[in-house]
């Protein structure tokens, strides 16, 4: 796992935005072979979306051949409700880029058959060839997607009851009236995230500091579901300074020191990949 530390949320957004844009452009997606991207909602990824929109407007990236899967959606909230994740994604991202609507997947929290909806979602991910890069955020209790503390680390897309903390944290979006916050959500499972070929997680702000420490400095633990990332072969966490407050000084120093080394590794990896592709081409 890699941890990248930047000064503030905006620079975190810039870093991840550039990173994702580079990954998509390097992938050279086509209609037959689209780049499959997993996406979160919430306040943490907004700077990333902003930066990606800027890159798109500057003509540096197109989402024409990008297929997206969102992590979660509330159950029973109308799709056009101001707090639905459909609304969020359209407002913060999709309306500003050139992604074809048919490439967008968000769980339908109003489906008659919620279990069927979840199963179909897993199948759709599989049919799209699996997720290339899953961008995620975390909750204060360390949840990734709506995989609240205690979720199975091998869980798949399913109906989930929200933890009291999450309901309380979200009340601010529902007129501070806790009774208006939906109690249930559909969410991809921890295993769904783990199955993607790469995971990038944005962690910003003091309130996420404890969760970050629990996720990377302690063992794999279903009470801090992000910790499952420790078992992922290609995971990246990008945090701001505030979010590192609960980490050991040693941890922070270590990750900062390896950032440059990591870039070098990446460059080498890219070169090797290109060479191997070249060789494949020759054998044809």
């Amino acid at each position: 796992m890699r941890l990248i530390i930047r000064d503030d949320p905006a620079s975190v957004g810039t870093y991840i935005g550039d990173y994702i844009a580079k990954r998509i452009n390097d992938f050279k997606p086509t209609p037959e072979r689209p780049f499959v991207l997993g996406l979160p909602t919430g306040s943490s990824p907004i700077p990333t979306y902003k930066h990606l929109i800027g890159l798109h407007k500057a003509g540096k990236i197109s989402f024409e051949n990008v297929v997206t899967f969102n992590m979660d959606e509330y159950v029973g909230l109308p799709q056009d409700h101001s707090e639905s994740y459909h609304t969020f994604m359209f407002r913060e991202f999709f309306s500003h880029i050139d992604i074809p609507p048919k490439n967008v997947h968000i769980l339908n929290g109003n489906a008659v058959d919620l279990i069927g909806e979840c199963k179909a979602y897993e199948q759709a991910i599989k049919d799209a060839g699996g997720i290339e890069l899953f961008l995620g955020g975390i909750g204060e209790d360390g949840h990734i997607a709506f995989n609240e503390p205690g979720s199975s680390l091998t869980s798949r897309t399913r109906i989930k009851t929200l933890a009291y903390d999450t309901i309380q944290a979200n009340a601010r979006f529902f007129g501070n009236d806790i009774s208006k916050v939906p109690r249930m959500a559909l969410t991809v499972g921890v295993q769904t995230v783990m199955d993607s070929r790469e995971v990038v997680v944005v962690v910003t702000g003091l309130r996420k500091a404890l969760a970050l420490s629990k996720a990377i400095e302690e063992g794999v633990n279903h009470l801090w579901t992000l910790s499952a990332l420790q078992l992922h072969p290609w995971a990246l966490i990008v945090a701001d300074e505030d979010a590192t407050n609960e980490l050991h000084v040693k941890t922070v120093k270590y990750f900062k020191s390896i950032e440059r080394v990591q870039e070098e590794v990446e460059r080498n990896h890219e070169e090797v990949r290109r060479n191997s592709e070249g060789r494949q081409g020759n054998t044809w």
Partner: peptide, 13 residues
């Protein structure tokens, strides 16, 4: 038109 509905329901942009 309602842009969000057009996007998600009619699947058009």
């Amino acid at each position: 038109v309602d842009s969000q509905k057009t996007f998600f329901q009619l699947r058009e942009r």
